[in-house]
Design a binder for these strands. Structure first.
Length: 292
DNA sequence: GAATTAACCTGATCGC
DNA sequence: TGCGATCAGGTTAATT
């Protein structure tokens, strides 16, 4: 499910109830997600204050006042829901519906972690496929941690440009589509935004990564940045699982040019038809007429 | 070492 | 209505 824009949408929603707040209680309702919870997971969170909530690739990082950081990944189907404890309480820039904050919130079959903070708010992590994870890492060791050490550049960072992308793609013998999905090449892109960015850059997903010209790399960088920014502004894309923390849907799925549009006519005037092919086991959607 | 495939898990959908 | 096959936004161990 969640690619960079969806994770960023979740971060913006969680921030008012997490950043500068303390965990009052944390409950895990099973022993593991994709990986086991670390020893004393709940005890290491309870009473701790979140100094900062940031994002790296598709990971959320809550920096604690204990020197540890809570790492969250939503996998394919993970979502975070926020429930207020007070009626019509305004938390940051978000209003939460008090009716949703009943005792049953967090008791669903796939609700795996329930956290209470002093915002006050209840935060529920739900993930039916359990490809997500939560763990704790020493903040000082974060950059060297196995989950983080090989992650490539952040596409929305100011210094991400054609030069950085060129270095990342140098010598890559795989397709540009597969390269964009490789988190070591670029952080945060998934199947949707890789397809959409290639469409905007008018580049065929089947082109070899190492063969892009400087001009094509520059066009691809622009396409990646604009599609990600537009998606974040729209609250991400909701296909089946992605929800904003208040339960609302993202809107960007209505703006897909090619993703999941096999057989539809290309939105450009080229007269082409969107095609689906499988690359590295994943569906790729593109217009063979105007993506070269 | 790089690239590709298979596996992890659950649920929705489609064709028969 | 039921059943099996297929597919899904991600990551990574195993294999080529």
């Amino acid at each position: 499910m969640p690619e960079l824009p969806e994770v960023e949408t979740v971060r913006l929603g969680l921030r008012p109830v997490l950043e500068h707040h303390r965990f009052l209680s944390v409950k895990t309702r099973r022993g593991d997600l994709r990986i086991p919870f670390p020893p004393r997971f709940a005890a290491r969170l309870e009473g701790r204050r979140v100094n900062r909530l940031w994002r790296r690739a598709k990971y959320l990082v809550a920096e604690l006042d204990s020197g540890e950081s809570l790492i969250i990944h939503l996998g394919m189907s993970g979502s975070m829901s926020v429930y207020a404890e007070g009626r019509d309480r305004k938390v940051g820039t978000y209003y939460y519906d008090a009716a949703r904050a009943d005792a049953g919130a967090g008791a669903g079959k796939h609700d795996h972690v329930v956290m209470e903070t002093d915002a006050p708010a209840r935060i529920v992590f739900t993930d039916q496929r359990r490809f997500g994870l939560m763990t704790l890492v020493d903040t000082a060791q974060l950059a060297d941690h196995p989950l983080f050490k090989d992650i490539g550049p952040e596409p929305l960072a100011d210094d991400f440009g054609a030069g950085l992308l060129g270095r990342a793609l140098r010598g890559k013998k795989t397709s540009i589509k597969a390269a964009l999905l490789d988190q070591r090449v670029i952080a945060g892109l998934g199947n949707i935004y890789a397809c959409e960015a290639l469409f905007r850059a008018r580049l065929s997903p089947r082109r070899l990564a190492k063969n892009l010209t400087a001009g094509q790399r520059a066009a691809l960088v622009r396409a990646i940045k604009t599609v990600l920014r537009e998606a974040i502004d729209a609250g991400g894309s909701s296909l089946r699982d992605h929800r904003r923390v208040d339960g609302g849907l993202g809107n960007f799925q209505h703006r897909f040019a090619v993703y999941d549009r096999e057989g539809a006519s290309c939105g450009r005037t080229c007269g082409g038809t969107v095609r689906r092919v499988v690359q590295n086991g994943r569906s790729t959607f593109y217009c063979p007429r105007c993506q070269k």
